[in-house]
Amino acid sequence: MPNKKKIIATTSLAGCFGCHMSFLDIDERILDLIELVEFNKSPINDIKKFTKHCDIGIIEGGCCNDENVHVLKEFRKNCDILISLGECAIMGGLPALRNGIPLSECLEEAYLNGPTVKDANPRKIIPNDPDIPKILNKVYPCHEIVKIDYFLPGCPPRADLIWNALYALVVGNEMLIPYEVLKYD
């Protein structure tokens, strides 16, 4: 048993929070987990800024805008190990369905031509306030922007898979991957 608690940070970029929900599905094992680790920046405890260097960073979601990129890079700077958690982080996931369509078409459909906005946006504005994040030309999987050390697949990955992976990383054991936790049908 390591004598110093490992420090973990998590974030959701272009994801749906489903991966975080699945994380919480480890149920009562969360009590074991907090014996082993300490959480830093994470939506779980609502810490908004890194306050110390972390051992493990868990990323849900890929990058669809420049803010995602900045957060991801900050994670890379502040964490020794980065994990892409779930389909969106690993491959872009559902948001990446737009990757085959030019961005201008996506924005026009979303803000100007779509049936629910057609009459609601008389001044034909595509949001452009400098304070809002800038949309990237396509949705990027995390490893195309920073180095990712581990990938946990699934949409969302099963709680058992997340638990096994974290436990192995924290304790320093080899990870258990029984067939059931990587089976998707």
Partner: peptide, 10 residues
């Protein structure tokens, strides 16, 4: 270059 398309649209 990743935000270039967006900047052009807005």
């Amino acid at each position: 270059s990743a935000i270039k398309d967006y900047m052009e649209v807005v």
